[in-house]
Computed example of a mutant assay.
Amino acid sequence: MRKKDEDQNIPVWAFEKIELKNPDPVWKYKGIQEKDELYELLSGFGVKQVEHIGSTAIPHLPAKPIIDLMASVPSFDQINPIAESLSLHQWHYVPPELDKQPWRRFFVKVENDKRTAHLHLMQEGEERWEQQLIFLEKLRANPQLVEEYAKIKHQLAQEFQNDREGYTEAKAEFIRKVLRN
C-alpha cells in the first residue's frame, strides 16, 4: 500500500475511470490533428511515421474518448529530449518502470486533468507496429468484428472500471484472435 504523501504526487489522470463513449466522427479529425502535430514535433528526432490507432480510429466502435497514436523512432537514445519537447505541448512521459511495457515509450496528453491522447513511441522494426495496423484494418473491414469487440469492451469496462491495466489485458485475447484469423 502506498503512503499518503506518495499518493499526493500522482496525477489525477493516472487513475481515471474507464468510461466508454458512443462512436464520435470527430475522433477521426482529432486523430488527424494530433497526428500532424506529433509529426511536426517529432520529425527532428527521426520520426518518419505517425499513425492514429486504437478504438477511436475505427468507425462505429465505442471507445474511451482518448486518441491513441503511435510513432516510430530509430532508437530510444533521444527519449529525454523527446520528452522535454513533448512536455511543452501537454504530453507527460510515463517512464518504462511505471509503464511496464519495455517495447515502447509511453506519453499521455492531458488537458484539464483528463487524458485526451496517448502516444506509443516504438523503435523502428518493432513487431507490434505491424500488428496494430493489421488489427485496425481487420476491424475497419468487418462490421461483425466491430460489433463483437464493442460488446467485449462494454463488459470489460464494467468489470474493470477502475483498473486500466486489467481492462487492457482482458482485451488481449480478442486482439490475438483477430490477428490469428
Rank of each mutant, 00 (worst) to 15 (best):
A117V: 06
A157D: 04
K177M: 09
P95Q: 10
A172E: 14
A14Q: 11
I53Y: 02
L20H: 06
Q78W: 04
V50S: 03
P143M: 05
I82V: 14
A141S: 15
V178F: 06
F15S: 13
V26C: 08
K171E: 05
L139Q: 07
K4A: 11
Y167K: 07
E169V: 12
L156M: 07
K153W: 07
L136N: 03
V26Q: 14
L136I: 09
N22Y: 05
N181P: 01
R180Y: 09
A117Y: 02
L179P: 12
W103F: 13
I67A: 02
E148W: 05
R176T: 14
R105E: 11
H118C: 01
L121H: 01
H60I: 09
N80F: 12
K35H: 05
D5P: 00
V108Q: 03
F107T: 00
N80E: 15
A150H: 08
P74Q: 08
Q33G: 03
P23L: 06
R176A: 15
F76M: 10
I175Q: 11
G31Y: 00
F106S: 05
V50E: 01
W129T: 12
E124T: 12
L133W: 07
S75T: 12
L20V: 12
E137T: 06
E37A: 13
W91Q: 04
V26Y: 08
F135C: 07
E137F: 01
Y39F: 12
L119R: 01
L136W: 00
H60M: 14
V94W: 01
I18C: 11
L69Y: 00
P25R: 11
L41T: 02
E137M: 05
F45R: 02
A150T: 15
F174C: 10
Q155K: 15
S43A: 07
V94D: 02
L41P: 01
K48L: 11
E37Q: 14
F76S: 08
A157F: 07
K171N: 05
I53T: 01
L38N: 01
Y29P: 02
F45L: 06
I79M: 09
G44W: 00
Q101S: 10
Y149V: 10
I53P: 00
V47D: 00
Q49S: 15
F107P: 00
Q8R: 13
K35R: 15
A170H: 10
K100F: 04
K171H: 07
Q78D: 14
K114W: 08
R2Y: 12
R176E: 15
Y149C: 05
E111C: 09
S87A: 13
E127A: 13
E40H: 11
E40D: 11
E84T: 14
I82S: 04
N162A: 11
S87M: 10
Q144R: 12
I152W: 00
Y29N: 13
S72R: 06
T56Y: 02
F160W: 12
E127P: 14
L136R: 10
A157V: 08
K153F: 05
E19P: 01
E127N: 11
L69K: 01
K177N: 12
Q144N: 15
I58Y: 00
N142R: 08
N162I: 06
G166H: 04
H120M: 04
E37S: 13
I79G: 06
D77M: 09
P74W: 03
N80Q: 15
F45Q: 04
D77G: 12
K171D: 03
S85P: 03
E126N: 15
K100E: 13
Q123L: 04
